[in-house]
Amino acid sequence: MSTAIINADDDHLEPTLQSILDQRSLRWIFVGGKGGVGKTTTSCSLAIQLAKVRRSVLLISTDPAHNLSDAFSQKFGKEARLIDGFENLSAMEIDPNGSIQDLLAGQGENEGAGDMGGVGGMMQDLAFAIPGIDEAMSFAEVLKQVKSLSYETIIFDTAPTGHTLRFLQFPSVLEKALAKVSQLSSQYGPLLNGFLGSNGTLPNGQNLNEMMEKLETLRATISEVNTQFKDERLTTFVCVCIPEFLSLYETERMIQELASYGIDTHSIVVNQLLFPKPGSDCEQCTARRKMQKKYLDQIEELYDEFNVVKMPLLVEEVRGKERLEKFSEMLVKPFVPPQ
């Protein structure tokens, strides 16, 4: 009964992530989905498969509850570190909230004011005023770091909460606003400086020119992040879901949202599929299998332009290099359920 599901129709795209492995131009790969559907497992498996065909691969977790360390049973930090047993696969864990704190703190020190005065205070206000800007800035920061490291492909294991790529929605607005502010400041800067004194200090101890420079660099980095992420040759998004209603619903919403941002996505990984042995008398398994089959059919029907990869639910936890490697095989070779 299961083979009918696995044998995709001829007009469907192949049910593997081979297309991502073959697309050499891909630089950024995002793996996202609802919490608990197996994003980390999928991103680790994809990283393992990619490492076989690329010169160097970096796996970055932006999830505050870091699971990479768990998956590989190895501690990772803010610096990229080679994963044990691989020569070209590294991993790092960044905290989107932490990195903005670092950013702000760094600025505070540069100003010589430990209490978040100066530009740091201004940036802090900005971070709270515009939703998603902290993420944008942390992404910009990561991109800057990663660029200097020259990895061929970077895989992001994104956080399930909120929308990681939310900031891609507002840059045009932000860019316009910042451009306006910059223009105003260049026009009226001299006038303002006349009021403010020779070094352009604002009443609350902030420097106008420096603030403008900061905003300008921020705008530049955000627009660069945007152009990179919206280029389908450079970036793709892999949606991970499980065949259940809520997960499917979220996936559909995410796909629509990604489309509205202009981010390419053409792969869906359906995880945790049950394949009970024929003649199995496990009541829950067969009932659940029936429900999963229903949603699987719906997925096949709805996403006929996607690579829909079906991954089985294993009896053991997918942890450690060997198990992940075995699991990752199924991303490129469709899983054949036991007869």
Binding site: F245, E252, Q256, Y295, Q298
Partner: peptide
């Protein structure tokens, strides 16, 4: 949306 997700999602789009 639960029974005919594909149709529902298409309508939704």
């Amino acid at each position: 949306s639960q029974d005919e997700f594909a149709k529902w999602a298409r309508l939704r789009r």
